[in-house]
Structure formats: structure tokens, C-alpha cells
Design a protein around this nucleic acid. Structure first.
Lengths: 147, 147
DNA sequence: CGGATAAAAGACACAAGCATCTTTTTTAAT
DNA sequence: ATTAAAAAAGATGCTTGTGTCTTTTATCCG
């Protein structure tokens, strides 16, 4: 809809790493890509970004892989949106008007403002940890079953 | 954000035609494109679609152009969304999961559902006529001032 | 130890697909 | 014949996806 595939891959990627971490092991790119049915190299770029942003950690070499760190569970959804899709899009007028603001509103200005604030509030409040805490027995299925 | 430029052009296009119609004249593509600062040929495709959908009418030839018809003011915003961006996107999971539904929800399912319903309600309720009725002295400016 | 090997992430470059925008040609009304 | 819409084909740019190479590091073997 309004969030890119990159965002979806990022979120599912982090969640998968966090889940595997509970089993006390690191997880490799190949496994994530396969389990989530996501293009390997494309995912690599996203995972790399998340490591750089300190949302996850990783080590190279044999028995290396991605794993949870102190920040992982505290990461807000909005952060993932920022590093994948960017946040500017939420501030641009639906009608592509540059001069659209509350003093000189486009015909849909206030409606969209409300929707936008609602969404930002949602994404700013929730963290990765929150999502994991929500009871859902089929959680792994729900992040991997794309077929 | 989540609506394409096509949608924005469509809405501004209809509004402009409806406004000019009050002056009792038809309006040509060139004028619309120029006043709204929109790519002429791209707008043409969109206007054509709206005519086909009976949201507007048009005549060819000299003194031809686009003009309001019986349906124009009754048209709901959601109709414009349908013919530009399509409505299916609102029903697809943010995480691109095919099997995401209320029985097997993805981690963001219910949040997104709420946002979606909210937006659809908004767009289903409002018509082109409603937007025109909202008092705004600078209405023309607001749909054209893109610079 | 210490170098060779293998396993993993990371970097680079490019190809496909789609939305957006432009140019040109065709069709039709007056 | 002139004017304007309609159609079609081409160009650009961004998102998504692929293939190949490089760098890092744990382990094995002497």
C-alpha cells in the first residue's frame, strides 16, 4: 500500500533474527532469505543497513551470522520506515502541492493530516519487542508464510 | 505518501473543470495542464479515463474541451482512487504476506486494518461536490499553486 | 603457533519492472 | 481545413531483484 517491500523485508528480517535468538543461536543470511522467501541479495542490503543502524549485530566468518543486540527490541517501527522508505513522504501533500499547509490547505489537507498523524503515532509507539510480545502461537508462520 | 501522482492530477483536474464550468465554459487540456502545472500528455491519459468513467464529459474539435456532467459532483473520492491507483492495494498486507488475514494476522495486521478502514471511510464519504462546497476563498490557488 | 582453507558478510555493478513523463501520430468534430 | 482529443510508442528514473567479486574471520592441519 504505502510502505515498500524493503520495509516489509526489514521488519520480517528483524523479527526472524529475534525469534531465532531465543533459541540461543545466530542466523545466517541464507536461512533468513529462504525461510522468509525473500530475494537473498536484496535482503542482504537491508540487513546490512540495519546492522549499520545498530538495530542488529552481525559477525563474519564461519559460525557467523546475524543476532540480536541491546537495541533490537527497543527499535521502533518508525525507525525501520525511516531507513527503508524515508519519512519525508508522510509530509508531502497528497495532491503534490508544494505550498500545501494548514494556512493554505489543499482540498484534502486536513483529512490526510489526521490519517498521517494516526499512522505516525502508531508506528512511533510500537517497538519490535512489542510485536514479539503480542501473543500469537503461529508467529513464525505469520512472518514467513508468503506462499 | 500512499496515493500516486495520477490520483492527485485526477482530483485537481476534475476540480478545475468543475470550477470553470461555473463560469459557463468548457476547458481544454492545455489550459488545465498549464494552470495546474501538470505534464500535459500524462494528464491527457487521466482525463480520458475520467471521461470514459463518466466522471466528466468532453467534446472534440474546435471549441471542444472538458466539462461537468450530471455525475461529476456526485463522484466519490474513492472512485478516483479506484481508477488511478486501484483499490486492491488497500487489501494487501504491509509485509507482502499472502496469507495474512484476521485469523492469521501478521504483526501489523490490525493496526493497518484500522488505518485502512479509516481512510476508506473518509474517501467513500466525500464527493467532489463536498470538496467544492467547503468554503475556501483561495480554492483555485490551492489546487493550482504547485510552484 | 602459523599459514591454508572455508564460511560468512559486504560491496559493486547491472538487469528487470513499473510509474511517470514526453513525443509523435491518428482520429474526429466543426 | 483546422482544431483538439485519443492513441500509441518512446524516454526517464526509481524500486526491486540478480550475479559476481572482495573482505573478514573461525577453524583445521602441519
Amino acid at each position: 500500500m504505502f510502505l515498500s517491500k524493503s520495509f516489509g523485508y526489514a521488519l520480517r528480517g528483524v523479527l526472524y533474527v529475534a525469534l531465532v535468538d531465543k533459541e540461543g543461536r545466530k542466523v545466517q543470511l541464507d536461512e533468513i532469505a529462504e525461510k522468509l522467501s525473500v530475494p537473498r541479495h536484496f535482503l542482504a542490503k537491508i540487513m546490512k543497513t540495519m546492522v549499520k543502524e545498530d538495530i542488529l549485530s552481525s559477525t563474519k566468518g564461519p559460525y557467523g551470522g546475524f543476532f540480536k543486540n541491546d537495541q533490537t527490541l527497543k527499535t521502533r517501527i518508525i525507525h525501520l520506515v525511516k531507513i527503508t522508505d524515508g519519512i519525508e513522504q508522510f509530509n508531502t501533500c497528497v495532491l503534490s502541492l508544494r505550498k500545501c499547509n494548514s494556512k493554505n490547505p489543499c482540498p484534502l489537507h486536513f483529512q490526510m493530516l489526521r490519517l498521517r498523524d494516526d499512522m505516525l503515532a502508531e508506528f512511533s509507539a510500537k517497538t519490535i519487542g512489542d510485536l514479539l510480545d503480542e501473543k500469537n502461537p503461529d508467529f513464525i508462520k505469520s512472518i514467513s508464510a508468503i506462499a
